[in-house]
Write a protein that binds this DNA or RNA. Structure first.
Lengths: 214, 214
DNA sequence: AACTAAACGGACGATGTCATCCACTTACCG
DNA sequence: CGGTAAGTGGATGACATCGTCCGTTTAGTT
């Protein structure tokens, strides 16, 4: 993918502008959502649109680069979760981290979901993330911290549900996300007599601009 | 609001076209989301854009009119829930109905949430819907079917979370929604030692085009 | 059948975004 | 310094959608 070509090879001023663009993109995307006008990003960065397009040929390239840091944080949380001796706690901490970011940064959710589970890969082999997640779930289940009929797809379910909270004012969304997570985790732990409806294999990258403004 | 002026006063052909437009709007909105081009609706209805705009001056007017039927169904479910001798069951049935519609009809969620709780009003006095919902919750709690720290705002939370599932393929979304609802209800019923994070008072009508396409 | 007001639909100007082009500027190297 | 390639930014054309205007068609009446 162009746009993330080694920034070290750039001239000093270009590298400076690249950073300003990324910062502007984070701000604008967080505030207006992922499909804010490119020109708005350029204006905020104090550069011309040409500079923006030269550095990041597509919106996707820009968004991906802009949220690399957040993605890295998620990946780190993923590693932590895998390393945590208490798998249930590790899983919870991971999901809390991701949910918080999803709900705080307006534009992050689409980027993240689009890249998921690659997003959590972060230097691991391909498919390692998905596998690691499965392992995390398995360990938590064996530790008696997840009900038997829990399915890894329920993670996806949680993340999608959480993404529905984005767009609320920041504090509200944060509070809502935490309560949602708490509800979910209590349900994840408590086995109940009746069986659950079957899990659905969701296409995470298929997140489409659902709500839209009225 | 114009657009829903008594259709009975219209000429026969105009009334016919009005129906075709509404049907087309339901189809197009369901398929492409609420901000599909107005011209697409007109084309599908087999009328010119002028006809569309004459009948429904704004997108909101069109969307509201198009989903009136679904809104009425929700309102009916609301009445049923209030009448149900088993308040827990009534509440569940109501939410299942709303969640299913939200997830099935792409464009319904924004319209519904924008009108909520008016949407459930349906002939009652203003604020009656919200009050009725509170009563429903209260009754269910007294019947021991809801935990003590359940908050009416958790209904909102559930609806928003469910709206995050829209945009998935129809069958997937349906399955996911049902599983989500099951998880939620188990959590709603099961009191647990630790306390929940506080509920957040969410602005339902503040649903903004969050995800957007990457 | 003839008349008229209602209804129609395509054309059109306005607006906003995208993404490229090109003439000008500037950082870096000798 | 001075040369030059990299970098820049605004102008620009392509494109899509919006919402209105207006000449034409048609339903309903006499």
């Amino acid at each position: 993918m162009p746009g993330d070509a080694d920034p070290a090879g750039l001239r000093a001023d270009a590298r400076r502008n690249r950073e300003r663009i990324l910062e502007a993109a984070r701000e604008v995307f967080a505030a207006q959502g992922i499909d804010a006008p490119m020109s708005a990003v350029a204006r905020r960065a104090g550069v011309g649109v040409a500079t923006l397009y030269r550095r990041f040929p597509t919106r996707t390239a820009l968004a991906t680069a802009a949220f690399t840091e957040q993605l890295a944080l998620c990946a780190a949380a993923f590693d932590e979760a895998l390393a945590d001796p208490d798998p249930g706690h590790g899983l919870y901490a991971l999901l809390e981290k991701v949910c918080t970011t999803q709900v705080t940064d307006r534009g992050f959710a689409p980027v993240f979901l689009d890249q998921f589970p690659d997003a959590l890969d972060h230097g691991h082999e391909r498919d390692c993330a998905e596998e690691g997640l499965a392992r995390l779930v398995q360990r938590a289940r064996e530790a008696g911290q997840l009900r038997d009929d829990f399915d890894p797809a329920d993670i996806t379910l949680l993340l999608l549900a959480n993404s529905g909270l984005a767009g609320q004012p920041r504090e509200t969304a944060l509070a809502a996300s935490r309560r949602l997570l708490a509800y979910f985790f209590q349900a994840f732990q408590t086995q109940r007599p009746g069986s659950l409806p079957p899990p659905a294999a969701m296409e995470l990258c298929e997140i489409r601009r659902p709500p839209g403004r009225l």
